[in-house]
């Protein structure tokens, strides 16, 4: 492998600190991957290789984790990442219509990011916020009960041209 670009000395130090919590180094894989993603916004293929190297596991071992877990992204999400829950409690309170309204408003399908990199839209399974159905996440923050109007208002804050 070439000179590591992802694991800067500082990042490596923080990863080592995380590993110290576990009797087996590999157990720190998820938290270290989260650290990489929080630092760079996503986990690129190069990052996958460096993570594999760091844990001394085959690259496929990291790819498995990337594809098994929904919170790891191989491409960065938009500045405003909208995730709307579609499971039963939220569906009963109109989540599916809301998701379609948002697709229409943003001009993208679920799972996509707008070309200008401003917005990403995803539907997700139960977030554990059923008391606030229909619920969602705006970036890290939980929000609900969501309405079309509230979401349009949030979109406006990020991009006046979509207002």
């Amino acid at each position: 492998m070439n000179q590591p670009a992802i694991f800067t000395p500082e990042l490596k130090k923080r990863a080592d600190q995380i590993c110290a919590n576990y009797p087996v180094k590999r157990a720190a894989a998820l938290p270290v991957m989260r650290l990489v993603q929080e630092t760079y916004g996503s986990i690129s293929e190069d990052a996958e290789l460096e993570i594999a190297d760091y844990f001394q596991i085959p690259p496929m071992g990291v790819r498995e984790l990337m594809t098994f877990y929904t919170l790891f992204y191989s491409k960065p999400k938009g500045k405003c990442h909208l995730q709307i829950c579609r499971t039963l409690s939220c569906a009963l309170r109109g989540a599916e219509e809301l998701i379609r309204d948002m697709e229409e408003k943003l001009g993208i399908e679920c799972g996509r990011t707008t070309e200008d990199g401003q917005f990403s839209l995803d539907h997700v399974e139960c977030l554990g916020a059923c008391e606030k159905a229909p619920a969602g996440q705006i970036n890290q923050e939980y929000a609900g009960p969501l309405t079309k109007e509230k979401l349009f208002e949030i979109i406006k804050q990020y991009d006046v041209s979509k207002a």
Binding site: N21, Y22, L30, P31, M33, R34, L65, F68, Y69, T70, L71, F72, E125, C126
Partner: peptide
């Protein structure tokens, strides 16, 4: 105690 965060999988 160590807090370990999951990564999205039911």
């Amino acid at each position: 105690i160590v807090i370990h965060r999951g990564a999205g999988a039911y």
